[in-house]
């Protein structure tokens, strides 16, 4: 694994070329079928589905008759653009006979997740569709409708103040972490998960919004980006080496408390190597290495310093 960038690109492209013929050699089943749509489109649907939650879609941009590409644009398939052909579903059924199902996007939907998602991705293929298949949500068979409520005038997952609760429905450990004493302001509704994560999937590890962890953090914490004259090696590499971004018991969302966190890597003779005891608390000798901000009482530039005399990150 000592290949340089061109070599790595070559490997990747080779794999792509290797797979291409195989992929192209496959062919889809040439299935044909008579697909029956309803007689009157949305008017047929509304005859039964006239409740407020359903009709709320007309307050959304999914239901703009002037949008030629939208479901309700001229010549489009209206409700059936998303719910599929309703020709079997809409007519009267005999007493005792079950009404043929339609894609409901609800918990009792009998269609597969991939089929449901296909209905969304048919239109939302501009970016989302091409990254979706590479993300963990697709692997876990999450349906678009598990997160999105397309009939709602304001979809909760699209609002910063309500999005975390939607995500926490599955990501429960993360919800628990955000309730720790030190966390980002999710609880206050000022930050959403998409601030850092690309939930529709992409080619970045852990579906981050930017290319790396650090680039994602710099989006709001650009003061820590540098480059600095005096760098702190782990800071330049990965913020997550010292911080727990979803929340921590420790100030600054640090993974552990200073000075022990710092002493995991700093063992120089003198004050970095000393085992600071509880007699250094305020009731005892009040050690400058334990109390207040501990190591940061002096080494306050732990993210890097641009002061010519700051090689020890003191100034």
């Amino acid at each position: 694994m000592n290949l340089q960038l061109p070599g790595r690109i070559a490997i990747v492209l080779s794999l792509g070329v290797f797979f291409s013929p195989y992929i192209e050699a496959q062919s889809a089943d040439d299935t044909t079928s008579d697909i029956e749509y309803s007689r009157k489109g949305a008017d047929t649907c509304i005859a039964c589905h006239d409740d407020a939650d359903t009709l709320a879609i007309f307050q959304t941009k999914h239901a703009l008759p002037s949008d030629p590409l939208g479901p309700f644009g001229h010549g489009q398939l209206q409700c059936e653009a998303c719910h599929g052909p309703g020709g079997d579903h809409s007519p009267r059924v005999r007493r005792g006979e079950e009404r043929p199902p339609i894609i409901s996007f609800g918990p009792d939907d009998v269609t597969s997740v991939s089929e449901r998602n296909e209905m969304c991705l048919n239109c939302h293929n501009d970016g989302i569709g091409f990254s979706w298949n590479h993300g963990p949500h697709d692997v876990d068979e999450i349906a678009c409708a598990d997160c999105h409520v397309s009939h709602a005038p304001r979809d909760a997952v699209m609002q910063t103040s309500t999005q975390p609760e939607v995500c926490f429905g599955c990501h429960q450990l993360q919800r628990s972490e955000t309730l720790k004493a030190f966390s980002h302001p999710f609880f206050e509704g000022n930050m959403d998960c998409n601030g850092c994560h690309s939930s529709h999937g992409d080619t970045v590890a852990t579906t981050l919004a930017r290319q790396t962890v650090n680039e994602t953090c710099y989006e709001c914490h650009a003061e820590k980006r540098g480059p600095f004259l005096w760098e702190h090696a782990p800071v330049s590499e990965d913020c997550g080496l010292c911080h727990s971004p979803h929340g921590s018991n420790h100030p600054g969302m640090l993974t552990r408390r200073a000075p022990l966190l710092c002493q995991s890597c700093h063992s120089q003779a003198g004050h970095p190597s000393i085992a600071y005891q509880d007699d250094g608390l305020a009731s005892g000798t009040s050690s400058q290495f334990l109390l207040g901000q501990a190591c940061l009482n002096c080494h306050s530039q732990s993210h890097g310093s641009n002061h010519p005399s700051g090689s020890k990150l003191l100034r």
Partner: peptide
């Protein structure tokens, strides 16, 4: 239904041209 839906999913884009929606007035929308 599943077979129908699978086919529908594959051809929905094309269907928008093929389905006769001339009577779909959406007068109750």
């Amino acid at each position: 239904f599943l077979v129908t839906m699978a086919v529908a999913a594959l051809v929905t884009t094309a269907q928008s041209q093929e389905v006769d929606t001339s009577d779909w007035d959406c007068e109750f929308c």
